[in-house]
Design a protein around this nucleic acid. Structure first.
Lengths: 208, 208
DNA sequence: ATATATATCGAAATATAAGTACGAAAAACA
DNA sequence: TGTTTTTCGTACTTATATTTCGATATATAT
């Protein structure tokens, strides 16, 4: 078998396995899904699974990497489609929220939470490459604001990138976790709360 | 044995077990610590451990609850010791950072992250009681700012409590996780970055 | 087409932990 | 001393990830 063909076949098999795992993870949950389940669902023997992935976590990381790609793509669209700072900002926020709602299991991982030990070594999906793409995105966003002179003049671009990212992710995370409390104690839907928070945060970035 | 004595003894045993588990969790890590380890280290038989705790998670939750108590106490001190909004605010931030640095394993759990499945039911440490205490604290903090008319007039107290909490926790979380990146790409220490972020966030809360 | 190499399979084995069962030993108590 | 409560020790059960390995099937080269 030619080297090219071989690589393609390998990719094909990996893709099948990942697709099967993805389905099971999303229906039964990650913990409840066994390697036997995955093998059966993907129509491979367990031994073969272990030829292509060295562990369950390896499969998991592969999936997270895929989603991170998807998310980055969507965020890029959001940011590039809008032409002023304000709409880019809200586009990005909403994009993240939608993603969190669609794939809550993966959202946390993308944010660096160690559902599966996001070991620094080895198959860490949140590699420099990805992180850079995401950061470049926010940088782009902020630059839009700087050009238009919307943004507070006392902010420094580089650290603000991370600052914005971390605050927004924190807000989304807590909104999801406290969803019930929001309703009961604040009498606010998650959506209302997020709208309020994003707006408040936005105001905090721009000149007044 | 009198009922009083019995309860005291029970508490004594539980405390011993928790103390042993705590040590092991902090040295070997939570996953790597087995029930046998805990039993041996606490000088009880495994069966006895299961008399006092119904599962490993039960022990873990007990520890987290303790730490949550400690943290709440420290935060209360920080906030009540300071008399203006600004110093309360920074006190609270620093208190949280110190805590995160001392007990990184538990910080995430306190923030609601499900290292061990923070099941809604049952032994969820982050119970309404605790959450309320924490929220009351931030409320107190914000009220200080409102009295002094430091705080932006367009903010609503209740949702802002959660907003402030989530943004600050997000900032701390990311600062820890991206520690390396901060150094390399921003040429900033974690401390510098946090100082910058907290200040920026502070500015975003007050009138200008 | 046949020999050789490669990929896949199936089933059993290994390893690790959590949690359970239960009778024996020890301690507390009356 | 006899009874109750607590603790112990050990072995068992269960669940699952990961490994092993010989058998089988598939593809490739000569």
């Amino acid at each position: 078998m030619g080297a090219r063909k071989k690589i393609a076949l390998e990719q094909f098999n990996r893709d099948n396995i990942v697709a099967a795992a993805k389905e099971l993870f999303e229906t039964k949950g990650i913990e409840k899904t066994t390697m036997d389940d995955i093998a059966k669902h993907a129509d491979y023997s367990k031994s073969t699974i272990y030829v292509y992935f060295k562990s369950k976590e390896d499969i998991y990381n592969s999936i997270v990497r895929d989603y991170l790609d998807i998310l980055t793509g969507e965020l890029e669209l959001c940011v590039s489609n809008a032409n002023d700072f304000e709409s880019s900002y809200y586009g990005l926020c909403n994009c993240l929220v939608r993603f969190e709602e669609k794939y809550p299991q993966y959202y946390a991982s993308l944010m660096g939470e160690g559902k599966m030990t996001n070991s620094k070594k080895d198959g860490s999906f949140f590699d420099t490459d990805m992180r850079e793409k995401l950061e470049k995105l926010i940088e782009q966003l902020l630059e839009k604001g700087l050009c238009q002179e919307d943004i507070r003049e006392d902010l420094e671009l580089q650290p603000t990138v991370l600052y914005v990212w971390s605050a927004i992710s924190g807000i989304i995370q807590v909104a999801e976790r406290q969803r019930e409390g929001l309703d009961i104690r604040l009498n606010m839907s998650k959506e209302e709360y997020l709208r309020y928070s994003f707006r408040t945060f936005y105001e905090s970035l721009v000149r007044r």
